[in-house]
Amino acid sequence: MPHPLISVQGLTKKFDDFIAVNGVNFQVGKGESFGLLGPNGAGKSTIMRILAATSTRTAGTVEILDKDPERFGPLVRAHLGVVPQQDNLDGELTVSENLFIYGRYFGLSKRFINNKIEELLVFAQLEEKRNVKVEALSGGMKRRLTIARGLVSEPDILLLDEPTTGLDPQARHILWDRLFRLKEQGVTLVLTTHFMDEAEQLCDRIVVMDKGAIMAEGSPAGLIREYSSKEVLEVRFGSDRNVEVAPVLQKMCERMETLPDRILMYADDGEKLLEQITAQKLHPTTSLVRRSSLEDVFLRLTGRTLIE
């Protein structure tokens, strides 16, 4: 990687006795879209706060554009656009006032911000809402405004903590489209998510996290290739029979995961495997052949599903 924008080594964060982040290493290059994937409590948000120079670390080194965020907080924060997990827009102000005053926090001139506001309102699809108090906006609109606000200062790096959590599917897709445009413009994105589809859609490279540590690192496709088979056959026999048939099925594939409601069988050709099962007179109540996803990677690495 050419000189990285973000470099994290041996990062550890303890809260009293609880180790939230345990010896994490990663780097993010310019223009990259980097994701931290993991379940709630994996330490993703803690890492994000440390990157955002709003939290201290217990051990390790962090450099953002060659600066330690702990020592040069305001300078590091001047490089960053931050989109927190919970929208924290200024409820007493309108949409355009929110963008304006946020730019002023960065010390930008009124003329610069006023030009920028027009551009950002188009980006966030909020031109019609410019004089509306933010409380009257829908969840998706608030999220888009929060992202637009993070872009007022033309940051080198945009940090997004769970950008689409709590949004309905349509609002998520609109948001993904907006983030994809930013990526195309060369903005460096760092995001956390516990949605595998989001990580696959937006990230060039991800680290899979669990219990404060990194389990694996790579591109979404590369991780799937490395840790899972090409296809997955999902079969259900009803909760009683799942356990009964499991030993038989085990012999028919390289790897298998028995979940409470279904059995996942990993194979390169799912249809062929299903034919073998039916040939043995084991008739699943439902069956589904799909491509492997990051969910399967996570299951392989931790033995647990992402969303429990």
Partner: peptide, 25 residues
């Protein structure tokens, strides 16, 4: 840019030298 502004001021971890923006808000 935001970075030039931050660099120009000898801003410390405690103070960026811009309390007046609070009054604007």
């Amino acid at each position: 840019s935001a970075i030039d502004i931050a660099r120009d001021q000898s801003s410390s971890a405690m103070y960026a030298g811009r309390p007046q923006v609070l009054l604007e808000r």
